[in-house]
């Protein structure tokens, strides 16, 4: 995880240098000059890697951002002086906060999950247990279940596996435990081989 984060940071800040490296690799495969590596082409138009690709000086931009940050901080410090900061409890609307009241990671992602539901295909169900089951006025407990359907297994791997299994099932008819049939297989194979050897022209 850490190496992934580091790699993302490195590629972001030093994108220009990294792109030059990649272009050199591509060029060695493609045997043409740097300036004309095609990425995509539509007839006579295309996207090519020109000289300025990822050419922005990212560290300079990062320095610019930090410069403004420091400038803001210094100006505020100079104008306002050292600020009095007091620490009080988090805003709780007057009722003591419990750990359950902070948003959970599932809940954070829930909105986006709902929007992309056709792709993510999750299922959520609510189960309610009543104290009076016939009239259902008094609830005793409720629970919510969330389960994800594995799309790749369901739509890709399982159908392929099914095809292979059915083929294998057909093939398994050969193996049915009769010794006599196995001896017949041996005989047929021998005869076929002999016939093939005889019919084939001598090389």
């Amino acid at each position: 995880m850490g190496s992934l984060a580091f790699a993302a940071l490195f590629l972001g800040v030093y994108g220009a240098a990294a792109t030059r490296l990649f272009v050199r690799i591509a060029e060695s495969v493609n045997q043409s000059s740097i300036a004309q590596i095609p990425i995509m082409s539509f007839g006579n138009m295309g996207f090519t890697v020109r000289n300025g690709f990822a050419g922005l000086n990212m560290p300079a931009l990062f320095l610019l951002l930090s410069f403004f940050l420091l400038a803001t901080w210094l100006i505020m410090r100079a104008v306002l002086g050292k600020q009095r900061i007091s620490k009080k409890i988090t805003w709780d609307c007057g009722f003591p906060l419990t750990p359950r009241m902070e948003i959970t990671s599932t809940a954070f992602a829930y909105s986006l999950m709902t929007i992309f539901r056709p792709i993510l295909t999750y299922a959520d169900s609510t189960k309610t247990v009543y104290q009076d089951p016939n009239l259902r006025h008094f609830v005793s407990s409720q629970s919510v279940h969330l389960h994800l359907v594995d799309m790749y297994m369901k739509y890709f791997y399982f159908p392929i596996a099914r095809v292979f299994c059915s083929i294998a099932r057909q093939m398994s008819r050969i193996q049915n435990g009769y010794i006599n049939l196995y001896i017949l297989y041996v005989l047929v194979t021998l005869v076929a081989l002999l016939a093939w050897a005889l019919i084939l022209p001598q090389s």
């Binding site: 988090t90 805003w91 902070e102 809940a107 954070f108 992602a109 909105s111 986006l112």
Partner: peptide, 16 residues
């Protein structure tokens, strides 16, 4: 950051 009930909701909506 502060862990109140509303900030997390706002962050979730904003990110969505």
């Amino acid at each position: 950051d502060a862990g109140n009930a509303f900030g997390g909701l706002g962050s979730s909506r904003e990110m969505t």
